[in-house]
Structures are given as C-alpha cells and as structure tokens.
C-alpha cells in the first residue's frame, strides 16, 4: 500500500499525485516507470515517474483519466492509498552533453519529460522545451520545466495559448533556425509518429518514450512488444525509450487498441 500525500488537478482529467514510495524514490532515474494497481481487483498499469523526493520518500505521478483504471487512480484523494506501486522499471534515459536538445511533450507526456529536461540541462545541454496540447487548460507543468529550459515554446491546436499549431510546427521552427543535436519526444503515439517523421526529414536523432499496454512490466508477458528496426522489442525491459526513427508507430497504435 502506498499512501497519497499530495494531489493536484492539472485539468479536469489530469491529476498529479505525490505517493509514498521511499525505495523507488531512491533508486529511480529519469525515464523509469512504475506499475500501479489502484485497488485489490484493479488492473496493473504503467505510469512514468515525473519526479521524486528522496528526503520525503515520495514519487510524483501524473495521470490522465482515459479508462476505467486511470479513472479509479484519479479519483483517489490525499490519505487514500494505491494498492500496489512497483518499480522503478525500464531502462533509464541515457543523459549526456550533446549540445542542443529539443524536448517536446504532448498532453501528459510532459510529466515523464520533466526529469529528462532537468537531466539534460544539468548535463550542460542547451534545452529548448516545446509543450503542446489541444487547448490552454491542457498545457501542464509549464512552471516546472521553465527553470531547466533555455526557452519554452507553447503550442496549442486552437491557439488559446502560445502559438497556434501542432507540436511539429514548434519543433520545426527550432530546427530551421538553429542546429539541433537531439530531439526527445514523449506524448500520444500519433504525436510521436509525426515528430519522428519530421525529424527524420531533417536527419536529427530522435528519442521517444513509449507507453504501451503492459501486465507485469518485468518482461514476462510480452503485451508491450513493439517493432523497432524490424525486430520485436519489449517496451518494459528494452525500453521505454527507443530511437524514434526506427519505431513502427502504426503497429504500436494498432496494438494500443487491443482491448477497445
């Protein structure tokens, strides 16, 4: 049982939960995720760790209510507990000084991007962050990413905040004006697909973090398998981060609809 010590609504469907998990707080690195069960008969779902506080023994999760299980998690209040939190899982992000890094996140994808932005900045990179969402209310964590970004570009589909346009327009504007060494993209699969197509055109190395269906999260079930460079990979143990230019996003999007 892992107690929720803090809760914040980012928007109607997106909540931030700070959860007691001292061992995970100590051992997690940027890019890691946890598997969570909301209740005794609940599903096991993967959530990327957005932040951690070793002294308080907590980790931060950002959850979007999209189905039954995430709805149950979002409905929990401070003082309630998640039945299970296990991790940290997956391979940590490879962080080093490469030069200029564009970190682009869509929707709740900004949450797992936050530790990567921090890490990239601390490693001495110039970091340009692109935040994107449908509308102003869905832009999250802007204040948290700003201190670690040399520049923050906000894109909204409806133009209600920042620049009107898709995330790709924001990324492209940076690539066209300056040399970019690496793009990191986390968000909905379709968004990452189009960011990847764009950066491939400009030949900019691009890393994505995939959020697929999982059961155990430790390599046992294979539900999370994706095709990368023509080979089957398991997101839970080989990932969650991959070279975006090599990921078969169409197959991944198909598999995400397995239980719809």
């Amino acid at each position: 049982m892992n107690k929720i010590v803090e809760k914040e609504h980012f928007s109607q469907n997106v909540v931030k939960l700070v959860v007691e998990a001292p061992a995970i707080a100590r051992s997690r690195r940027p890019g890691h995720f946890v598997i969570v069960r909301a209740c005794e008969h609940g599903e096991r779902i993967p959530l990327t760790i957005a932040d951690a506080d070793i002294s308080k023994g907590t980790i931060t999760l950002v959850v979007q209510s999209v189905g039954e299980s995430s709805r149950k998690i979002c409905a929990l209040e401070v003082g309630d507990s998640l039945t299970d939190v296990v991790g940290p899982l997956g391979q940590a992000t490879h962080i080093e000084k490469v030069g200029t890094v564009v970190c682009c996140g869509g929707g709740v994808g900004v949450a797992p991007l936050l530790p990567i932005i921090k890490g990239m900045k601390e490693a001495g990179n110039r970091v340009v962050t692109v935040l994107a969402a449908r509308t102003k209310d869905l832009i999250i964590l802007e204040d948290q990413v700003t201190p670690y970004s040399d520049e923050v570009i906000v894109m909204t589909d409806d133009g209600s905040y920042g620049t009107k346009g898709l995330v790709t327009a924001g990324v492209e504007s940076v690539i066209r004006r300056e040399h970019v060494d690496l793009v990191v993209t986390i968000g909905p699969a379709v968004m990452m697909k189009f960011v990847s197509l764009l950066t491939k055109k400009y030949d900019v190395p691009t890393m994505c973090s995939l959020n697929t269906i999982m059961v155990d999260g430790t390599g046992m079930c294979g539900a999370c398998r994706v095709t990368v460079d023509g080979k089957t990979k398991f997101v839970c143990i080989d990932g969650p981060e991959f070279d975006a230019h090599k990921v078969d996003f169409d197959e991944m999007m198909m598999r995400l609809r397995s239980y719809n």
Binding site: V215, M220, C221, G222, T232, M254, R255, S258
Partner: peptide, 14 residues
C-alpha cells in the same frame, strides 16, 4: 504482433 496473438504468459497471467 496482430491483435489477438499473445504469449501464454500474458494469457495465463491475465
């Protein structure tokens, strides 16, 4: 990797 093809581990674990 089509939907409906899965490992025995996934099926039995579920």
């Amino acid at each position: 990797n089509f939907i409906g093809v899965m490992s025995c581990n996934e099926y039995l674990t579920r």
